[in-house]
Design a protein around this nucleic acid. Sequence first.
DNA 1: TGTGAAATATTGATCGG
DNA 2: CCGATCAATATTTCACA
Lengths: 146, 146
Amino acid sequence: MDDTDRALLTLLQDDAGQAYAALGKAVGLSTAAAHERVRKLRERGVVRRTTVEVDPRSLGLGVLAFVMVESSAWMGDSAEAFAAIPEIEEAHIIAGSASVLVKVRTATTEQLQDVLRRLYAIDGVSGTQATVALETFFERPPSPTS
Amino acid sequence: MDDTDRALLTLLQDDAGQAYAALGKAVGLSTAAAHERVRKLRERGVVRRTTVEVDPRSLGLGVLAFVMVESSAWMGDSAEAFAAIPEIEEAHIIAGSASVLVKVRTATTEQLQDVLRRLYAIDGVSGTQATVALETFFERPPSPTS
DNA sequence: TGTGAAATATTGATCGG
DNA sequence: CCGATCAATATTTCACA
């Protein structure tokens, strides 16, 4: 993981479909070398997968909320219960008063309410505190150069 | 945006590198038809870009935190100020007591503290409340089928 | 590890029906 | 939307530094 790898990652984050020749030229390597670098980055798991970034609004998902989930029990083994709710994009165990922080996207606030209902149905969940996002400034991938 | 489009999006989210022939077969279309569908999804902006998913830990970014940023002024025009901090992955204006919610990834808690310092330097910011993630259950793209 | 080059296989991209 | 075509690219391989 040197600076060249980080540069390649940044380029791939911007456009994963570009030719290896272009990648190589941008970082000062030959096509074959760039290819080999990227192959190893995938092999090591640094690059998890190539995916597409989908506009949530185009899917009708206009409501974004972060929900602090309070619990009365250890939540460390509840990953599947949260993953079973498709509207949840992220779930993290957090330090502090709440136990789990989830990121939720729905079409309407009624559907958000329904997600809260399903959260309450998870074993150990004792409360929720939802915060609705009014506007998203930006959402971007982690910066390899920080 | 019918069910076929949503199916294509799900397939592309899982692997954007697969051949159009495979995509077409999976949804019951010819190669050319699948190609055309995806082209239009890009054209419409439903698919923003093809990118790679990078493992944050491989970049040395082992600390994840969500920071509630309180302010004493209107923050609606401060997108660039937040974007100028590379450790910030997301920034949203939120309803509630705080004004902005940001997602931050750093290598160490010291660097997280430094991000907080830079947040305070933004005009109008009057306070921060950071919540550190102890474990990430999952992070996944928005589900086209919800 | 990297370079340059060459070969093949696969795929992206386009067009007529 | 389909089938077929053609150009571009990925992928693999090689000898060599």
